[in-house]
């Protein structure tokens, strides 16, 4: 079983860890920079655009090609599979090999899980949750020459100043449309700081109203989180949002609407106005901290 990995250096250690759990006979990785990972061969390729990633991987030999589940690599994986006539699995979970490949996928915005079986060779982007990054030394390191004329031209790249990685937060205070004004985020921030929590939101708050940055949007097209406690304030519970916090240990929801769908997916559902609950909660916690 020859597994090939293609990754940026940041995701590579977790990807190697996932690949090693499949006991490959040969493990090769293509990366844009050197990384200290235990693989048989590490190939360093100077690729800057998806077009060249696809060209770099097209001639390579493998039984299984694994990629991180980022937007760029989802494009690269799908294009390579189409070009080579191979099956492609997107954001695969619980991948298993037995001459064929089997993996689970989240479907219908997380309401279902499907198990898919397909032949090898195959291409997959892999959900890396739960794979601890591994360190080690590659047996050999080589440079990979890539002959590529990209068809798209990158004019500019701008990194967003990342404030936070919500997927690592222990406690999250999240707001939805029940929050009426941007200024009211102040009391939410105050509550979060008392709880040592991060502030998160539903899609309308970040994408439509732009009150909070995209990296704080929890949901299907945002971040998936797994805190100990998820406090959902003024969130109705649309499934595109719910899928983002479904792995939280405990969910406490506050909503004024007794029939809000979030009542079905929370451990504690408080039927109340968040504007009455939050100030009292702040006061109560302060009182306890003082005593």
């Amino acid at each position: 079983m020859r597994i090939l990995l293609a990754s940026d250096p940041v995701h590579l250690p977790s990807l190697v860890s996932a690949a090693r759990s499949l006991s490959p006979s040969n493990l090769e990785a293509v990366s844009t920079a050197r990384a200290e990972v235990p693989v048989d061969r590490l190939l360093i390729a100077d690729v800057r655009v998806n077009d060249c990633w696809v060209d770099a991987l097209t001639p390579r030999d493998f039984d299984l090609l694994l990629l991180p589940p980022t937007r760029d690599f989802k494009e690269v994986g799908a294009r390579l599979a189409a070009r080579r006539g191979l099956p492609y699995l997107s954001e695969a979970l619980e991948l298993e090999l037995d001459g064929k490949v089997e993996a689970s996928r989240m479907v219908f915005s997380g309401r279902g899980v499907e198990r898919i079986r397909t032949s090898l060779p195959a291409v997959a982007t892999l959900n890396l949750d739960g794979f601890e990054p591994v360190e080690g030394s590659p047996d050999s390191v080589e440079e990979l020459k890539v002959d590529c004329t990209p068809r798209v031209e990158v004019i500019e790249r701008r990194e967003r100043e990342a404030e936070v990685d919500l997927s690592k937060a222990d406690v999250i205070v999240s707001v939805g449309r029940g929050l009426k004004r941007k200024e009211d985020l102040e009391m939410i921030r105050e509550l979060a700081s008392l709880l040592g929590a991060e502030v998160a939101c539903t899609r309308p708050i970040s994408a439509d109203l732009k009150w909070l940055p995209e990296e704080r949007h929890v949901g299907m097209t945002g971040v998936r989180v797994k805190p100990k406690v998820y406090l959902a304030l003024g969130i109705s519970g649309q499934i595109q949002h719910v899928v983002g916090f479904r792995d939280a240990d405990t969910v406490i929801a506050v909503n004024i609407d007794p029939d809000a769908p979030i009542s079905e997916v929370s451990d504690y559902f408080v039927v109340a106005d968040l504007y009455e609950v939050v100030p009292r909660l702040i006061e109560e916690i302060r009182k306890r901290k003082r005593s």
């Binding site: 989802k74 799908a78 294009r79 492609y88 997107s90």
Partner: peptide
């Protein structure tokens, strides 16, 4: 339903 984000890339290929 699937959100595999694969179709546009494959159509292009």
């Amino acid at each position: 339903d699937q959100y595999s984000c694969a179709l546009p890339a494959m159509v292009a290929e």
